[in-house]
Design a protein around this nucleic acid. Structure first.
Length: 300
RNA sequence: GCUGAGGUGGCGGAGCGGACAAUCGUAGCAGACUGUAAAUCUGCCGGCCGAAAGGCCUACCCAGGUUCGAAUCCUGGCCUCAGCA
């Protein structure tokens, strides 16, 4: 069975670095699993730290910053590229922090192929949450019944559910058959305090690397707040610095806070997956341990 | 020193006699997630007991007072800010 190595974890745990080390040792090619690294031009802002040793990384810089991109496109792209890597006889290493993107590669998402309906979305987003709830309830009571309180109050989920229900009435049921891989899934983590320290150091470094200039060059390209790339962490904060409304120190504080809570959301997502082998990056031995684990799996 | 404004939970900021352990935002904690996922949404968030309902305690700068009842009114004190000196 085709092997697939996955490296996940919250932001600022050094995923890319260990991934490229492993790539070297096991004929690997990296496939990014990061929803913001697919956009061109957002390099420093999104911490797109590419392997410095020449290791190949895919699924990065796929579209312009002002374009829309979503899991569905990622799923297709990533599965395709992983196929190619296998054909080349190399080991694909899926590395990133976007849990849904990783899942989309290895698990089926039956509704993934159902396209967005922009005009429907536009009208639906004018409705209140309770109106959306009523619409969904009448269109697809079963779906509604399966949703939990959190999702029933989530306009995005409601709109998509309505979109799917609307599409379903005119089409055959959509199905997705996930490819099967021999997966080894590794997770990198650390205590919340340690993560926060790492994040802060990283955010600070971004300023010396020139985020302010990078964001300035963006100009108005991300003014449309509906664009996914426009919601990249730190963007509005750095813009505050660009316009002179925010001091750099305060910007670093605020951005660190944003990234930290993002890291917590990532952990919440990954925690559920019991097949992940976790490693604490503050343990000095962890790289050797990871390598040993990969080796054992790779050669079996 | 005078005049004016004000001191509320980690922070910001409502409340201006009872329904206030105190709206809301933010931070914090926990969680959800099937085409925006670095998005979006949910719950908790003074202390103690309890599964919960609920109960008890300590609370709106400090000290007194008025009142059946005070974060809210009065007196004094301390502090902050703005204007004038």
């Amino acid at each position: 069975m085709n092997k697939l190595l996955i490296i996940c974890g919250p932001t600022a745990t050094g995923k890319t670095r260990i991934a490229s080390d492993l790539a070297k040792k096991f004929n690997g090619e990296l496939v990014g699993a990061d929803s913001r690294h697919v956009y061109k031009g957002l390099n420093i802002l999104t911490g797109k730290d590419l392997p410095i040793d020449g290791t190949k990384i895919w699924a990065v810089d796929l579209v312009e910053a002002h374009e829309h991109y979503s899991v569905s496109q990622y799923q297709q792209f990533a599965r395709g590229i992983i196929d190619d890597i296998h054909i080349r006889g190399n080991l694909p290493i899926l590395v990133g922090g976007t849990g849904l993107y990783i899942r989309s590669v290895i698990k089926s998402i039956d509704t993934a192929a159902i396209p967005q309906n922009p005009s429907l979305r536009t009208t639906l987003y004018l409705q209140s949450v309770s109106q959306l709830q009523k619409i969904l309830l009448s269109l697809d009571p079963k779906k509604w019944g399966n949703m939990n309180t959190s999702d029933r109050n989530n306009p995005r989920r409601l709109v998509r559910a309505i979109e799917v229900a609307t599409w379903n009435t005119g089409h055959q049921k959509s199905q997705d058959h996930a490819p099967t891989f021999d997966v080894l899934w590794i997770g990198l983590t650390a205590s919340l305090d340690k993560l926060r320290d790492n994040i802060k150091a990283r955010v600070r470094a971004r300023f010396t690397q020139g985020v302010v200039e990078e964001v300035r060059l963006l100009g108005k390209t991300l003014d449309d707040t509906m664009l996914p790339a426009a919601t990249s962490l730190g963007l509005t904060i750095v813009r505050g610095v660009v316009s002179g409304q925010l001091r750099e120190d305060d910007a670093i504080e605020q951005w660190t806070t944003q990234e930290s809570s993002y890291a917590k959301r990532q952990l919440t997502w990954f925690r559920k997956d019991t097949s992940i082998h976790w490693f604490d990056i503050t343990n000095g031995q962890y790289q050797r341990e990871v390598e040993a684990l990969v080796k054992e799996w790779y050669t079996s």
